[in-house]
Lab assay of single mutants.
Amino acid sequence: GFPHNFQETTYLKPTFCDNCAGFLWGVIKQGYRCKDCGMNCHKQCKDLVVFECKK
């Protein structure tokens, strides 16, 4: 597997964290999205993600 390539992201529609399944709250920059596989997560979850990037 590969490490994720997370970038701070502004979501335009309701989005949930792929790590904890919690809602990504806020208006802008609600969470992080992996540029390579599209995984979404909270800032506090991005260092805890157990799934490797599937590129």
Rank of each mutant, 00 (worst) to 15 (best):
V27D: 02
D47A: 11
F51V: 12
Q7P: 00
G31W: 01
P14W: 10
K29G: 09
V50F: 15
R33P: 00
D18E: 10
Q7C: 04
G38V: 06
P14C: 06
C41Q: 03
V27M: 06
K29I: 06
K35G: 09
G31E: 04
K29L: 09
K29C: 08
K43I: 15
E52W: 06
L24D: 02
V27E: 08
F6Y: 10
M39G: 10
A21K: 13
P3W: 15
K43Y: 07
D18K: 13
T15F: 04
D36K: 09
K43L: 11
N40Y: 05
C20L: 00
H42D: 11
G31H: 02
T9S: 14
C20W: 01
G31C: 04
N5Y: 03
N40R: 09
F23W: 13
K46L: 13
C20R: 01
D47H: 05
C37V: 00
N5C: 07
C17E: 01
L12D: 04
K43V: 15
K54E: 10
C20K: 00
Y32L: 10
H42S: 05
V49I: 05
G26S: 04
F6D: 01
C37F: 00
V27T: 04
L48K: 13
V50P: 08
W25F: 08
L48M: 14
K35S: 12
V50S: 12
K35F: 07
G31V: 03
C17N: 00
V27A: 10
C53G: 11
R33E: 15
F6L: 09
C53V: 10
K43M: 12
Y11W: 08
C37G: 00
Q44C: 13
Q44D: 15
H42F: 00
K46A: 10
F2A: 06
F23N: 02
K46N: 05
V49K: 07
L24M: 15
V50K: 04
N19I: 08
K46Q: 05
L48G: 14
T10A: 04
L12G: 12
Q30M: 03
C20M: 00
N40V: 11
G26P: 03
D36R: 11
V49W: 14
C20A: 00
D18G: 05
K43Q: 11
G31P: 00
T9E: 04
Q7L: 08
N5M: 13
T10F: 12
N19K: 11
C37Y: 02
F51E: 12
C45V: 02
Q30R: 03
E52H: 11
K55H: 02
F51Y: 14
Q30W: 02
K35C: 09
G38R: 13
F2W: 03
F6K: 02
C34I: 01
L12M: 15
C45E: 14
K55D: 03
K43W: 03
E52C: 09
H4R: 00
D18N: 12
Y11K: 12
G1N: 15
T9M: 14
Y32P: 01
C20N: 00
C45F: 03
F6A: 06
D47G: 12
K13E: 02
V49Y: 11
Q44T: 07
C41I: 13
P3S: 15
N40F: 04
L48Q: 14
F51N: 15
V49E: 13
T10M: 02
A21Q: 05
V49T: 11
F2N: 15
G1W: 03
G38S: 12
A21P: 09
C34Q: 00
Y32C: 11
F51R: 13
R33F: 13
N40A: 10
K46F: 07
E8G: 13
E8S: 07
H42P: 01
C34H: 01
F51A: 11
Y11H: 13
C20E: 00
T15L: 06
G26I: 00
C53K: 06
V49A: 14
D47S: 14
K54T: 12
G1M: 15
Y11T: 05
